[in-house]
């Protein structure tokens, strides 16, 4: 479905994407994680045909590059920076972009209704986008990616500023899309999102992959041990262990425990371990 090989993109002195290769197949949600400035958006822009790689190749469905207009018919993009017409209503935006993708008549109407439903904006469909809240705009931005029912979805931080209710509804529907055989490239800074949605995750920094695997494998390889924290009257005890249950039982037997907490290794820990704890500029 999507095939990148040895893709490089430079901005004068900055190498934004450095020899990146990966593939994503139908029915797969590929998570794209990395600190600010890691090169995620740059990569997505290249896949969407907005930027041309300095070297390397990108192949979409059927082997055509994103520079070919007909190949872009198969791609839906929710860009990180909102790109919708503020003076048009939600459904006008969707109808317009649907038309550009070649939809018309009843198919177009159905797809517009479906996309509005997907992002739960049906009751605001006839309002101008400039009257939407930030999260609503973000949701409409996602709906535009979906309106022409593309097999490949590039979602660049689609849930920023979206409330937990809508977000959870969106996750369920994205998982539905996956079972329909769509390929999703999903960028986010919320680790629990990636953990919940993604089949595989690539962790990128300075334009390079630091690791790429299933979530479970990443945690197993880079997550380290579980941490058991026990609070007693005289203070706190932290114990690292591969068998936290066993540790808990031992602590319980020793007595005097006020509370017990087990921190299992998770994606966040993997991420921080791989990319370091230093703040990014």
């Amino acid at each position: 479905m999507l095939h990148l090989s040895n893709v490089v993109k430079r901005y004068s002195s900055i190498v934004a994407v450095d020899d990146l290769s990966f593939e994503a197949s139908p029915g797969e949600i590929f998570g794209f994680l990395g600190p600010n400035g890691a090169g995620k958006t740059t990569t997505i822009s290249m896949i969407a045909g907005l930027l041309t790689p300095d070297s390397g190749s990108i192949k979409l469905n059927g082997g055509a590059g994103p520079d070919q207009p007909h190949a872009r018919r198969d791609v839906g993009v929710a860009p990180q920076s909102l790109a919708i017409y503020e003076e048009l209503t939600g459904s006008e935006n969707l109808t317009f972009f649907g038309k550009l993708a070649g939809l018309r008549g009843s198919t177009l109407r159905q797809r517009v209704a479906w996309s509005l439903d997907f992002v739960a904006l049906n009751d605001r469909r006839a309002d101008r986008v400039k009257t939407y809240s930030g999260g609503m705009k973000r949701r409409l931005n996602l709906a535009v990616a979906l309106v022409h029912d593309p097999p490949l979805l590039l979602l660049d931080e689609p849930t920023v500023g979206v409330d937990p209710q809508s977000r959870n509804a969106m996750f369920e529907r994205i998982l539905e899309l996956k079972t329909c055989g769509k390929t999703v490239i999903y960028t986010t800074h919320y680790m629990e999102e990636a953990q919940r949605l993604c089949d595989r995750v690539g962790i990128i920094d300075h334009g390079k992959f630091l690791a790429m695997d299933t979530v479970d494998n990443l945690i197993e390889q880079h997550g380290g041990k579980s941490v058991v924290t026990a609070t007693r009257a005289d203070g706190e005890v932290r114990i690292e262990s591969t068998d936290p249950l066993d540790e808990c039982i031992k602590l319980q037997q020793a007595g005097g425990i006020v509370s017990l907490r087990v921190d299992r290794p998770d994606l966040e820990r993997v991420f921080l371990k791989l990319t370091g704890r230093a703040l990014r500029d």
Binding site: S45, G49, L50, A83, I84, Y85, F97, G102
Partner: peptide, 14 residues
């Protein structure tokens, strides 16, 4: 400047 041009460029049109 509002980004809709990139949206148009990502659409399957020349």
């Amino acid at each position: 400047t509002r980004g809709t041009l990139s949206r148009l460029r990502m659409a399957p049109i020349g």
